[in-house]
């Protein structure tokens, strides 16, 4: 196969004009030849005998690349959000509420560290999940329902599973950008004292990917938007934000409410972040459990997303 490919390359590029292969789409190529600007080689010639080969290999990346082109068109707002959001929260909760909490607890907040250090990784993880929600729910709804771009993507060799994965990857890149910026502010506020505090970035990213995968699964299953996202925001995201050990340790809640934290991806991501930023003492088995739980949520989300995408695209 390799020899044949190289052989093909010489024939196409170096061979005399008369021996140049005719592209399969010869008719369309004739049209191409009539245009003002023209590509040096036709599509059939570039793609080779099996025209879908590159799409099958790199389809996921093409979907991600497309999302990055879209994000470029509103990069200014992404940048403003990524700067203003951490500053706002760290001042209001870390510094403002922190002063009050610390003064009542002899200069130390929960976990024996200043309040801003305690709450910082939780705010970091929260920002990851918030962005993951925004960058999953609405683009997926737009893809199936509003602009129907997924149907356009699927008219090419790219498959439903590749589209779902590519959307998740693009969302992950956006979350990574947001949490990296947030972490820089944490460090600037002195809220990330540990040497390995940057590990809070992949921890928050893992949380964002897990939650995002669940949202992609949910959004791809919603055929008619009857205000479902508002319900998710009010009944899932808001309680998750309040009861995941974000502002106070989960243990201070009555046992009957602690389960909200245990199932919440936010709590697991937050605890991992705390281990990274200030060395919270968490048993190695528990650290592993946090990672595995988040990984499992992500796998489940992807599995359901694959099925939903295939079902809706192949109707």
């Amino acid at each position: 196969m390799r020899a044949e490919r190289e052989d093909a390359g010489t024939a196409a590029e170096g061979g005399p004009a008369g021996e140049r292969p005719q592209p399969i789409g010869g008719a369309a190529a004739e049209l191409r030849a009539g245009g003002a600007a023209r590509a040096a080689r036709g599509a059939a010639e570039i793609l080779g005998p099996r025209r879908s080969a590159r799409s099958l290999l790199y389809g996921v990346w093409y979907v991600t690349e497309h999302q990055l082109v879209i994000m470029r068109s509103y990069f200014t707002t992404i940048l403003m959000g990524s700067v203003l959001n951490p500053v706002m929260y760290l001042f209001a909760i870390g510094v403002g509420i922190g002063a009050f909490v610390n003064s009542n607890a002899g200069g130390r907040g929960p976990g024996g560290v200043p309040y801003i250090v305690f709450v910082g990784p939780a705010l970091l993880a929260s920002s990851a999940l918030t962005v993951a929600f925004e960058e999953s729910a609405f683009p997926v709804m737009a893809g199936f329902k509003w602009q129907k771009v997924f149907f356009a993507m699927n008219a090419t060799p790219v498959t439903g599973g590749q589209i779902a994965t590519g959307m998740l990857l693009a969302m992950g890149l956006r979350v990574a950008f947001t949490v990296a910026a947030f972490w820089a502010f944490l460090a600037a506020f002195g809220a990330a004292p540990a040497a390995w505090s940057f590990l809070a970035v992949p921890a928050a990213l893992l949380g964002g990917l897990s939650f995002g995968a669940l949202i992609v699964a949910f959004a791809s299953g919603v055929e008619d938007d009857e205000g479902w996202f508002t319900i998710v925001q009010r009944l899932i995201i808001a309680p998750m934000f309040l009861f995941s050990g974000t502002f106070f340790p989960l243990e201070s809640l009555p046992l009957g409410l602690q389960w909200i934290g245990w199932i919440s991806p936010l709590w697991h991501a937050t605890q991992l972040g705390r281990v990274a930023t200030y060395g919270l003492h968490e048993a190695p088995a528990l650290v592993a459990a946090h990672i595995l739980y988040l990984g499992a949520l992500q796998a489940a989300g992807l599995f359901v997303s694959f099925r939903n995408f295939d079902r809706r695209l192949s109707k």
Binding site: L47, Y62, E65
Partner: peptide, 26 residues
Amino acid sequence: NLDLEISVRENLVVYGRYFGLPFSYL
């Protein structure tokens, strides 16, 4: 089902990418 958020030119290039076509062609 065009992508309304990006330009005419970007729509053509982005779509061509899905077929595995390189930028030098697109």
